Computed example of a mutant assay.
Amino acid sequence: MTPLYLLLTFKICLDSHFIMYLAKLKENSRSGLPLHDVERFIFVLHGAVTVTSAHGESHILKVDSYAYFPPNFEHSIESDAPAIIVVFERRYAHLSNHVTEPLVNSTDKQPLLETPGEIFELRKLLPMSLAYDFNIHIMDFQPGEFLNVKEVHYNQHGLLLLEGESIYRLGDSWYPVQAGDVIWMAPFVPQWYAALGKTPTRYLLYKDVNRSPL
């Protein structure tokens, strides 16, 4: 089989606790495994892939579907036709008496969550239990909507704009962004977002959770 073809979407930041990349799968591609103790999350952007566990359980993932693989969980990702996925990997921060579980799901099956004081739509793709040391958010904004507060927090972010065009503020700098653009946000950097185009925007966001940043 053709090996999985990887395309880095942004340079690796030395202070980052995770990596994020696009994987362009050619026809009849098959992935390898991440390194020891590294967990993996994939989200389908184009086409379809099949994920299979070492026990032989298989699932077909289409656009907006995703899978989470715990550290040291044997699995494969295969494609019969060209496909594109975004991949997040990080070395798992173990917590006593807490264990993550593999999962397969799709964005449209996740409930909209309450966002007090805000008007955007929010879905969280991973369980919010202490076992998980990161989460992936899907955030939807209608044209003209924006974050009501300038955020500053300890969390790192990796963002991929899936639809539309907008503007992002990082520190004292302003960046126009459009579908396909990627942003890495360091801890404690002020950030703000506004959907400025004529169509809705959606982005996918990595976020550290449930672990001390120290």
Rank of each mutant, 00 (worst) to 15 (best):
T2N: 15
L6K: 07
L7Q: 12
L8A: 11
L8E: 10
L8Y: 09
L8H: 13
F10S: 14
C13T: 07
S16V: 00
S16L: 04
F18S: 02
M20V: 03
M20E: 00
L22H: 04
L22R: 06
A23R: 02
R30V: 06
R30Y: 04
R30P: 01
S31R: 05
G32W: 00
H36R: 03
V38C: 14
R40Y: 00
L45C: 11
V49I: 13
T50W: 03
V51N: 03
G56L: 07
S58T: 05
S58R: 14
H59Q: 14
L61F: 05
L61Y: 03
V63S: 14
V63I: 10
D64K: 12
S65E: 13
P70R: 10
P71E: 09
P71T: 07
F73K: 08
F73S: 08
S76N: 10
S76G: 12
E78F: 07
E78M: 12
S79C: 09
S79N: 09
A81K: 08
A81F: 07
P82R: 02
I84R: 00
I84G: 10
I85R: 05
V86E: 05
V87P: 04
F88M: 10
E89Y: 13
E89P: 06
R90S: 09
Y92T: 07
L95W: 12
L95C: 13
T100W: 02
T100G: 04
T100R: 02
V104Q: 14
D108P: 00
L113V: 00
T115L: 07
P116E: 05
G117S: 06
I119D: 09
A131Y: 05
A131K: 04
Y132C: 15
P143I: 02
G144Y: 01
F146I: 02
L147G: 06
Y154N: 07
N155T: 01
H157L: 05
H157M: 02
G158C: 06
L160A: 06
L161M: 12
S166F: 00
Y168Q: 04
R169G: 06
S173R: 13
S173W: 12
W174Y: 13
Y175D: 07
Y175V: 06
G180E: 09
V182G: 09
I183H: 14
M185W: 08
A186G: 12
A186L: 09
P187F: 12
F188E: 09
P190K: 09
Q191M: 14
Q191Y: 03
W192R: 04
A194M: 08
A195F: 04
A195P: 01
K198M: 05
K198W: 00
K198S: 10
T199Q: 11
P200Y: 04
T201R: 03
L204D: 02
L204A: 08
L205E: 01
K207F: 10
V209M: 15
V209W: 15
N210V: 11
R211K: 13
R211Y: 15
S212R: 14
P213T: 11
P213A: 15
